[in-house]
Design a protein around this nucleic acid. Structure first.
Length: 334
DNA sequence: AACACAAGCAACCGCCCGAGG
DNA sequence: GCCTCGGGCGGTTGCTTGTGT
């Protein structure tokens, strides 16, 4: 007895989005900001389900999305967070602000799962003491499904809990000494939209600056230059011969920086100069805190994540946890 | 060169949850 | 308290692209 579909299926277009549709959607969101997706199809004339619009935005058009290969550090992060949070891809994605949950999910399913399975197989062959084969496809049902048995699971959980508690304590201490910035007082400059957009540190520190729920000041979305440029390039690629009437001009979208986007081809977003295109903060603002586990949430709601993040991002912590995740004594994956 | 198969990824589907009436 | 609705999430599908034969 499911709910009725979010929109009338009749006349709703499905399948891949066209560049024209992308531009319409981006233009609309530029003016109105994301949200109220229900109204997007009616206001834009897009024959798309509201969900489809939202997904297209969050997974592809949203500013600050990095595409292309995952770095080893990102892989580690995913492995670590997946072990910690299970298949809560949105929560995991909140710690990789340049990646979407869909990307991470796909990457997990296509790459990391295989790696883990391979690792598991080799482990089985070396240990070979009756360890059950693990189901890596549904770790969420048992968040610690990577554990070989209950004892190592318990050990791992205890150590993890200890680490969290230590981080919490340290954070509380730090907060009691140093008054954190008022999180509601961010300016656009703080978020990387201001004129002095030299905030090259957005990639690694955004989670601390995005706890506020920024209501998307108008004009911000015009700066989604990278993605807009990408779709425009695809658009031009798709229609290379004809002189395309500029849909950008038609929609009044100001993307003057798009042409200067240093890397606009599909898949090489890693070369993007994020000092020029630092949009991550805004996007995170809408998706961060509620997704996290209680302990993590506790840290977040206290207004700072720096210590926790330091712990989270710390390579040694990764190795420690991954080591403990893995069967005892097993080599770390990377 | 043509075909088959595998891998990668964008998009869809259905369920769940919180907000609001 | 119940119901409806919008939005979010994870799982899955199916198309596209790459690779091997």
């Amino acid at each position: 007895m499911g709910r009725p579909p979010c929109c009338d299926k009749i006349g709703v277009k499905k399948g891949p989005w066209t560049p024209e549709e992308d531009i319409i959607l981006v233009s609309y969101i530029q003016d109105h900001g994301p949200g109220n997706w229900r109204s997007v199809p009616t206001h834009t004339g897009l024959r798309r389900c509201s969900k489809s619009c939202r997904l297209r935005w969050t997974n592809y058009l949203r500013p600050g999305i990095k595409r292309g290969n995952f770095t080893q550090h990102e892989e580690k992060m995913i492995l670590h967070l997946q072990a910690l949070l299970g298949n809560r891809w949105a929560a995991i994605a909140s710690y990789l602000p340049e990646r979407t949950d869909n990307d991470i999910k796909n990457y997990w399913n296509t790459h990391l799962k295989k790696k883990l399975k391979k690792m598991n197989d080799s482990c089985d062959s070396t240990i070979n003491n009756g360890v059950d084969s693990k189901d890596f496809s549904s770790p969420n049902k048992n968040t610690t499904s990577h554990q070989s048995n209950s004892s190592s699971k318990g050990q791992w959980e205890r150590r993890l809990q200890t680490d969290i508690n230590m981080a919490k304590q340290a954070l509380c201490d730090a907060l009691s000494l140093d008054k954190p910035q008022n999180p509601t007082n961010f300016s656009l400059t703080d978020l990387g939209y201001g004129p002095s957009s030299s905030s090259s540190s957005t990639t690694t520190t955004t989670t601390t600056t995005t706890r506020n729920t920024n209501p998307y000041p108008s004009g911000v979305y015009a700066s989604s230059a990278e993605n807009i440029a990408r779709l425009l390039q695809n658009f031009m690629k798709d229609t290379p011969k004809t002189s395309v009437p500029s849909p950008v001009a038609a929609t009044g979208m100001a993307i003057t920086t798009a042409a200067s986007s240093p890397s606009t081809t599909e898949g090489d977003g890693e070369g993007v100069d994020h000092s020029l295109f630092s949009f991550n903060s805004m996007d995170e603002a809408e998706e961060k805190p509620k997704l996290l586990d209680h302990d993590i949430n506790g840290l977040i709601t206290q207004g700072s994540l720096s210590l926790f993040e330091k712990w989270l991002f710390d390579e040694q912590s990764h190795d420690l946890i991954i080591n403990n995740m893995s069967l005892e004594g097993q080599e770390v994956l990377f």
